[in-house]
Design a protein around this nucleic acid. Sequence first.
DNA 1: GTTTATTCCTGACCGC
DNA 2: TGCGGTCAGGAATAAA
Length: 297
Amino acid sequence: MPELPEVETVRRGLAPVMEGARVTKVELRRPDLRFPFPIGLAEAVEGRTFTSISRRAKYLLMHLDDGTVLISHLGMSGSFRIDWEGEAAVPGVFHHDRSKSPLHDHAVIDLARPDGKRASVIYNDPRRFGFLLLSAENQLHEHPLLRNLGVEPTGNMLDGAVLAKMLAGKKAPLKAALLDQTLIAGLGNIYVCEALWRAKLSPLRLAGTISGRGGKQTVRSERLATAIRAVIADAIAAGGSSLRDYRQADGSLGYFQHTFNVYDREGHPCPSPDCSGTIHRIVQSGRSTFYCPTCQR
DNA sequence: GTTTATTCCTGACCGC
DNA sequence: TGCGGTCAGGAATAAA
């Protein structure tokens, strides 16, 4: 499940291949993913050169030299793969991982790089919840999908004061509030569960209750902000370390081994050293929440 | 304005 | 072994 750290990992994998590369061909193998491909997408991208690959929340932004931006979202099951010309695909990969079958290679971007190498960047997405869209650079911040996004949980923007202010008065469960992309941009189900566990806060607690009077920062808001930043930073670091040898694997980007403290750990003992509780699974707004009722209050 | 439910999709998994 | 049912989840959209 690609959340912000996975998307950032994909970005770091794609950037050195795509930046400075000219697009020789774009092949769309079906008319749509979650949304129809924009009319003229291939023509708009072919012949242009990628200047940079950036990220906003879970969106990948591929900037072209004429001010066009290719917006990509991996949805639930999307991934990118890099095939280098002259290098055989790793045999057997797709036999072992049907989820990345060539059947679901929906878009192929052929590149010619300044160093003379040629590569194809391939978008694969079995469940087709992802999408590729176009925007103009100077309208990017007004794009309907991007304009309402909240604060990035990276860097030092998200602190206890900011968090307390944004959650003040909120009646939704803390879990739901943290998933709201207009508040914090890029958190998904997994890292929300992990961050709440680290902060020792219950996902059931009403979001507003971690703020002080008048939305002032509190010990709890400080603890949660720190936990969110740490969970995301750790996951990005783990993804970065998996990038080193991504070409030995199967060329695909964005998925890496990761162990979680609570996510998908129902029935396991709480990993917190000073807690003898058990991880529970509940459903909140239709989604699984994993947490320890003993130490998360 | 705020919050919750539904919808899209396919593969993995489980029980019979 | 095969079949049917359930589940996973990001975010637009509709509904409460």
